[in-house]
Every structure is written in structure tokens, then in C-alpha cells.
Computed example of a mutant assay.
Amino acid sequence: MVSGTHVREAVAHCVKTLSATPSSDWSAPAGSLEWTCWETLEHLADDLLTYALRFGLARPMEVPRVPLRISSERPDGPANVIFGDRAAGPGGLLTVVEACGGLLATAVDSAPPTTLAPHVFGASDPEGFAAMGVVETLVHTYDIAQGLRSDGVPPEDLSRRALGRLFPDVAVTDSASSTLLWATGRIETPGRPRRTDWRWYGEPLGRRPS
């Protein structure tokens, strides 16, 4: 089971992991991504917010995308609907992430559990979107921590919950955290080369692949 509580726990992990890093480091690439650490954190906030907005609609499946203006601050940067105030520094951007994560947590816990909302990998329910928020938060916290040369290994319990809900095709080996990072193309593990192509399965349990 994945709920808004776990979204909040993932965001708390993100804030704790990244809050002590000097502002000067945030222009570094985030791990293996082409985005900077700052851009990746903005992208995370954007993911959490746009997931939450889907459940603000009376009939989510009738709206493929909430029609907000999308823009990018540079050609190779992420395309977002929200951006952090640079003057507020990383601490301010982490506050944005915390707020967006709180909105998602409230939205998924308030929505009827059978509600479906669209996603590029297939329509999903509130639990699925909660799990997506957890995965986005854990893996992008790891990406940013790599760029900032700090430890961003995801918590075991959250990793195991996310894997169970979104990655039915992936067997947990070694630790749940390393398996999640492997499943999302971040690392290689013994006997499993690094993935260059991956996806999750957000469909409700009865519609998931066997």
C-alpha cells in the first residue's frame, strides 16, 4: 500500500538530504542527467504539482492534460509549469517541493480510491500516483545528491513499497533501494547491467501485467 503519508515521507527525505548543501553547488549536473541540480529539483516540484492537479478535477479521465503554460529556461532544460525563485536559494526551492508534495499527498488521500487519472504509461488510481510521487522524489533526490557529492540513497521501506506498486516485473535483489535505482536506470547491480530503457506500471492492480 502506498498513500499520501509515504509521499510526505519521501519529500521529508528529500528535504533532509539536500537542505545542508551550499548554494554554489547547485549548478552542477544532477548525476547522469543533462539537467543541473537546481533544474532537477524544479522538475521534481513540477511532477508533484501536476500529479496533484489531476485529482482536483471532477472527471480526471476527460482531461488528458491540465492546460497550463509550459516553458523552459534554456534549450536543454526541463519543461515545467512552475519555477523556483532563485533569490530564495535552494532552501526556498525545497520549500516549493515540500508544498507540492503536500498537495499530492492530500489529493491522493482525499480522492475516491477507484478514481482514475491519465498518465503517459497508462491510467492510474490515487495509490498509483502516490507511488509515482514517491519514485520521482527518491530517484531525483538521488540524482541531485550525486551532483552535490552527498549521500542520497533512498530509504528501504519507501523503495520496497514503490517497487511493489509500480515495478511488478522487477525482482528485489540485494536491497530495495539499489533495486529501485537499477529499475529506474540509475545504476548497475551484480548480474544486471544498467538499464537504458525502463518504465513503470501505474495501472490499478487488476490491470497490471502478469
Rank of each mutant, 00 (worst) to 15 (best):
Arg65Phe: 13
Val97Gln: 00
Tyr201Arg: 00
Val15Met: 03
Ser177Cys: 13
Glu9Ser: 15
Val170Glu: 11
Pro155Phe: 09
Asn80Leu: 02
Thr141Trp: 01
Val2Ala: 11
Glu156Trp: 07
Leu93Trp: 01
Gly185Val: 01
Asp25Glu: 14
Arg160His: 15
Ala28Gly: 07
Phe55Asn: 00
Thr184Phe: 04
Thr50Pro: 07
His119Thr: 05
Ser27Gly: 10
Ser24Phe: 09
Glu9Met: 11
Ala117His: 01
Leu48Ala: 02
Cys100Arg: 05
Arg59Met: 13
Thr21Ile: 07
Ser210Pro: 01
Tyr51Cys: 08
Ala111Cys: 03
Leu44Gln: 05
Gly152Met: 09
Cys14Lys: 01
Arg59Ala: 14
Gly202Trp: 01
Leu94Val: 04
Val11Cys: 07
Pro75Leu: 04
Asp109Asn: 14
Pro193Ala: 10
Asp174Glu: 14
Ser71Ala: 10
Pro209Gln: 06
Leu18Arg: 02
Leu49Arg: 08
Leu166Glu: 08
Ala28Val: 03
Glu98Val: 08
Val153Ala: 15
Ile82Thr: 10
Ala79Ser: 06
Glu9Ala: 15
Pro155Leu: 10
Asp174Phe: 10
Leu181Gln: 05
Trp35Ala: 00
Arg186Tyr: 09
Ala10Gly: 08
Ala12Phe: 07
Asp169Gly: 09
Pro209Glu: 07
Arg194His: 11
Ala88Leu: 10
Ile82Arg: 02
His13Ser: 11
Thr106Arg: 12
Glu62Asn: 15
Gly152Glu: 01
Leu181His: 06
Arg74His: 02
Val97Lys: 02
Ser175Thr: 15
Ser72Ile: 14
Thr17Ala: 08
Asp143Gln: 05
Phe121Asn: 12
Ser150Trp: 00
Gly191Asn: 05
Pro155Glu: 13
Ser3Val: 14
Val63Pro: 04
Pro78Asp: 03
Ala111Ile: 04
Ala52Leu: 08
Pro190Ser: 08
Glu73Tyr: 08
Ala12Ile: 13
Ala105Gly: 13
Ser175Arg: 12
Pro204Asn: 02
Gly122Phe: 12
Leu68Glu: 14
Thr196Asn: 12
Asp125Ser: 12
Gly102Asp: 07
Ser210Gly: 10
Leu104Ser: 08
Arg207Trp: 09
Leu180Ala: 14
Val7Asn: 04
Pro60Met: 09
Leu163Trp: 01
Met61Val: 11
Leu205Thr: 11
Thr17Asp: 06
Arg192Asn: 14
Pro126Gln: 07
Trp198Thr: 02
Val63Met: 10
Trp35Asp: 00
Arg207Ala: 13
Met1Val: 15
Ala111Asp: 02
His140Gly: 03
Ala117Asn: 03
His140Val: 04
Lys16Trp: 06
Arg149Thr: 00
Leu93Pro: 00
Gly4Cys: 12
Leu44Met: 08
Arg65Trp: 15
Pro90Gly: 01
Gly102Pro: 10
Ala87Gly: 11
Ser71Gly: 06
Thr50Asn: 14
Arg208Glu: 05
